[in-house]
Structure formats: C-alpha cells, structure tokens
Simulated assay, not measured.
Amino acid sequence: MTLQRPINKRGVRAKRALGVQAALEWAFRIEKAQLELPPPTNVVEEGFGFGLEYVLMQRAVLGCKVDGGQHKMGSYTHSVAEVIAATVAGMPDSLGGIRMAIYVAELARAGLTPDWLPGVVPRCVPVETKRNQHGERATTIVVSTERVLSRGKWRTVEVLACPVTWRPHPEQIASARRGYEDWWQALDWVRDGLMAGRMLREVEVTVAMPKVRPWVSG
C-alpha cells in the first residue's frame, strides 16, 4: 500500500484516511519503520544524539508539521511512518510500555491481529490415550480396590478411572482474550495520540478500530 493521497475537486491532494490498524501496518510493514526505543535507565544519556521523540516534541513547540516525500526510495522511510513509530515507542507503562510497543509493531509488521482463539470451545478429553489393534482408547489408572462376591467367592478387583482434562483449558482462552483486549487498548491509545498530535500532514487517522470483543456475538 503506497501513500497516494486522493485529489479533491479543487485539485488539492487531500489527506489519506486510515484506521489506526491500517496506519500501523503501512508504517511497519510497507515503510519498514523501526521503533526508536529509549536507552536503558542505567545508560548515561550523554553521547546519544537527539531521539526522534525529542525532535517531534520540538517541532510541536514550533508549530511545525511533518511532511514527507511521495515515494519510498531505497532504505528511505516515510517521515509519517516515523511519526507513527515514535508514537508507538512512547507507549505508557500502564498499557505495557516497551514490551507492548514491540508487540504492536511486530503484529503490524506481519499484518496480523492477536489470536483470540475464535471458535475454540473447551472439551473434556482423556489426559492420555493409547492405541492397539482395537483402536485408540483412553488410558486408565487404578484408584482403589474393592472386595466383591463373584460366583460364590470373594474376590479383590481394581477400580479403574480415566483421568480427564479440559483442552484447551478455559484459562488459556481467557488469557488469549485478555491479550487481545490489552492490544486493543494500546491501539486505542495510539489512535488518540495521532489524532490529538495533528502531526501527520498526509494521513488522517480515523476513529475506526478493530472490534473490541469480537468473541461477543451481537
């Protein structure tokens, strides 16, 4: 997807409208933007150049907006994509911080949405099975013994049980869906930041968002 802005009736190129997920995928997947993460807290900042975030803040103070070239050439990354990457890199700790920023960027780079295990329902299944000439059967274990009267004689017999489990476990499904919700909250924060910053001259980030809980029908 190239960043070709539509031309309005006055012959002026209008901003291209993108939802935040589409904007992230364009920045990281097409433009190959990289996260400019802050240095570790135990690293002395002297000797480091000004980061992109600092430059963006200074431009904001001066009232400037970022503009970029029309086409990607070689290793050139569109400045709009760099702004998007810088916004992601500023993910607050309350939403997962650097770890979430990397997660959001990697998903966008792959063009993926977090796997919330759609259509998966926990099933009660044997813990272990074995196969013989009669087919596959659940493995049983001895849980106790009983004395029973059989044909006039008392005999000791084993009481067998089949250990079962839930697959996938309900907690696995719940964990996957919590992960999706965390990702959604991160995208919501990025969207609000890009919309409020007004630093994307060629792109207009819309209010469009992925479904907040796609596993909830209706």
Rank of each mutant, 00 (worst) to 15 (best):
V88A: 04
T156K: 14
S150N: 07
E146K: 00
Q70E: 10
R99I: 03
M100T: 13
R167K: 07
L160F: 14
E36Q: 03
P6L: 09
F28T: 02
A138V: 05
V207G: 12
V157K: 04
E36F: 00
M209W: 13
L117K: 09
D182K: 08
Q34W: 00
S75K: 08
G119D: 12
V207F: 09
G47L: 01
E82F: 04
L117I: 02
A60R: 11
S79F: 15
K130I: 02
A23E: 13
W26A: 12
K32R: 14
D188E: 14
R213I: 01
K32V: 00
G119L: 11
A60H: 08
R137Y: 15
V207L: 11
T87H: 03
G11A: 11
I98H: 03
K15S: 08
H134I: 00
L160T: 05
V127D: 06
V216S: 12
Y103G: 09
P163T: 00
T2K: 13
S144Q: 06
R147G: 00
V125F: 03
T139D: 07
T41Q: 09
R213H: 10
E25Y: 03
T140A: 13
P40D: 11
F28M: 05
E202T: 14
L37D: 04
R191F: 12
L117Y: 04
K32L: 07
R109P: 05
R155S: 00
W26P: 10
W166Y: 15
G47F: 04
R59P: 04
N132G: 12
I30L: 06
P114W: 06
Y103M: 05
V88R: 07
T156H: 03
